[in-house]
Design a protein around this nucleic acid. Structure first.
Lengths: 239, 239, 239, 239
DNA sequence: GATGAATGAGAATTCATTCAT
DNA sequence: AATGAATGAATTCTCATTCAT
């Protein structure tokens, strides 16, 4: 019964080739992360390094949490020297905050982009559920959500930011959808508009589940979310 | 934008009287925590100290997380010397694990005790929801759940234990209830028995919410859970 | 042309015997510094260690200045572990300040004790000059004065303390003596009472001289101070 | 009780205009320091940069001491890139040494130039005293003297240089003056020629005083030096 | 059993120096 | 020549763990 602190000595440096999985790229264009093509100009190189640090930091922070992460490891994983981190970030905390924010942007983008496609509210939510499971719950992005849940209490400003930029916006969008569903007669219970959290809850549980128990007890998140939607919309479907 | 690391210098020691709020006692009998009455015999004294350490550790670990917690602070809060901790626990990690387990016992007890009271499944679940919000989401016990969510990824054995002792049992109990509901015609969608998580999800979201956003955006958890139950059982009640 | 930074690897630890010169003891009773007899009780041991750290710190700080001194070296020289320093002093700066203050006490004591012996003002000042040269200018105590001159600008509070506790008191005492000398007709120029610094100046120069040029160009400080006194009192003596 | 380490972020660079006070130019011709007129030829430009670095270094080293000075700050203050310093100086220490030497030249010049003007020895020394207070004790030049006193012990070669170039020459010049005074009957005590330090001592004390206590307890250095001269020459003047 | 002083490995951060552009 | 990004050795400070009292 040991805590996971296997020190990742000798992690792939940039020079020796990048072995990070594709899922690693969180809000970082894949070409940047790879560090294979080296841009000719200074600014691009700097941006690249910064991105590498953020990517490496994300890996480490999600794997170990804020306090247990060593900047030494972040540097090694990013393929830069320890001091280089400090050229881009004031201190460990600034890196952490910046990193979470950077990682959140694509989440926000996703959330706001989804409804656009059209169709019935039920269809929109179903697409949302599938996209969420595919792109968040079962990928690296889910780590960010888990990271925020884990460290949020210790970083109120982070929780605030997350609330402001993701949660309140997301819930507001969800409320709009629900109101649309009520107006169109798809959703019966009008009180649902007061608690968009209900609609989202199983999705969040899926995220936590994958992170904590996924390995031992996999969860068919898509099926679960579909049943939950049936609860909300009335179980027309047979799937 | 700072992390919360307010060092709790000069925390009430046992000698100077215990000022911790009642909510502090999590799975620790109040007489033990208080350290007011001093048992005459050795064994009882030892047990008392051990309990004080566990209680103090719970406070610190939930407030700061595993890595950021100082045993110094735990000792001070428990009113014992630092070395004493090592008389009871092999190391910091053993304390942490032991402590979470100890804290989980009453949760398990609660979960298994609830259905006993009788009534319709709907009534049972409603009682469960109220009890959960009252005793977990809005109290110190919620901190434990949040702690497990936060550190679970770093302590697989802990996540395993939690899964085995709490989650699987709890879900199994919930499944039984759901099947009862289906059999009695209270619940229409039979597939719900495959995903008891759906029933529990809003409750968990309430726990997370209180911990992260509760201060700025309070959530009427009871109302939310009731609406969710209406979704599951059909909205007979309008409360 | 190199700066002096010869790292004193393997300095005498307490265990291997104390090789520090006798002149080292600055306001620290010799029995304490030696660390030969180990006191039976805790408190005494602690005081002893604290004293050892202060003594070691004085050596290092006077030899290298504040910024260039490594606490590692102080610890090694004091025969304690690095962390032990932090049990006694908040940080490097606190050690430095505390150390200078501690070292100043005997200086103050000396200054205030000297006039007591009696005799003509001229005799008192001559005794003072001899004592100063013997006990300060040519010993470890002079290092403290030089240290304050060197770091004073960087540590205003230290300069303030030095001014308050040593300089102003010392000058005040000197003024009293001068006024006595004027009253008794020993000193002709009454304006000297306005500038006791004049009387002290050659003594200070002697301190600086020994520190900077003493090795190459020794200065007969006693002779110099005597001639200076002749200037002040009229050159009756021809020595 | 904090050490003074106010990091001079955003110091006026050469490009943004030089805001340093006139007193800054210590042995550096003002046109060089200003970096306003840009010479057309390479060599002149280089010399200009070198001078700017020296001037900036002087500011920083006198303000913080050798060890605590950051070349980053020197570069910023000089309006050059950090690397440029290394084009002119081997390393930090070379800059320091070179800088002190450069700064000392005008001091030497001053010392040797003064007696030339003629008049009685008393008059010469009085002129010297006034010039010293005006040009050294109360200006940036005093910082150099203080710097040498502070770092001299750590840089023996520097102390040697200072001794050779300034102290011994200066004292020799002073001895000549004293001998002149004795020959002319102005000075009675012939032994003064053996200790020119006595004549200089109050001037040095004035320098130290201004640096350490000047802010809180200003000293009328000119008045003090005059009284001291009266001691040496017999108090004819009452001023 | 308790204690808490002492330890020293370890982590964050700084900064002199180098070097590709 | 000049630049300033990058480096990594060095240093301060922390804290889990030990152990003499």
């Amino acid at each position: 019964m040991r805590a996971v602190k296997s020190k990742p000595r000798k992690i792939a440096t940039a020079k020796s080739g990048n072995t990070r999985p594709a899922a690693n790229k969180v809000g970082v264009t894949s070409t940047q992360t790879g560090r294979t093509a080296r841009p000719s100009n200074r600014a691009a190189r700097a941006a690249q390094r910064r991105a590498a640090i953020i990517a490496a930091g994300l890996d480490e922070f999600t794997a170990r949490g804020f306090a247990a992460t060593r900047l030494d490891d972040v540097a090694r994983r990013a393929g830069v020297a320890k001091g280089t981190i400090y050229l881009h970030f004031k201190d460990k905390e600034a890196l952490f905050q910046e990193l979470v924010r950077t990682a959140l942007v694509p989440l926000i983008v996703n959330l706001t982009a989804l409804p656009a496609a059209g169709g019935s509210i039920r269809e929109i939510l179903e697409r949302f559920a599938e996209a969420f499971v595919r792109d968040v719950a079962e990928t690296r992005r889910g780590d960010i959500v888990r990271l925020i849940m884990a460290e949020g209490a210790r970083f109120p400003s982070l929780a605030d930011f997350y609330f402001r930029e993701v949660v309140s916006r997301g819930l507001e969008g969800m409320r709009k959808l629900i109101e649309g569903g009520i107006a169109r007669g798809e959703i019966r219970d009008a009180r649902l508009a007061d608690f968009p959290q209900i609609v989202v809850a199983p999705a969040l549980v899926a995220v936590m589940w994958q992170g904590l128990f996924g390995r031992h007890a996999p969860l068919d998140a898509v099926a679960m979310l579909r049943i939950h939607l049936d609860l909300i919309f009335g179980e027309r479907r047979v799937s």
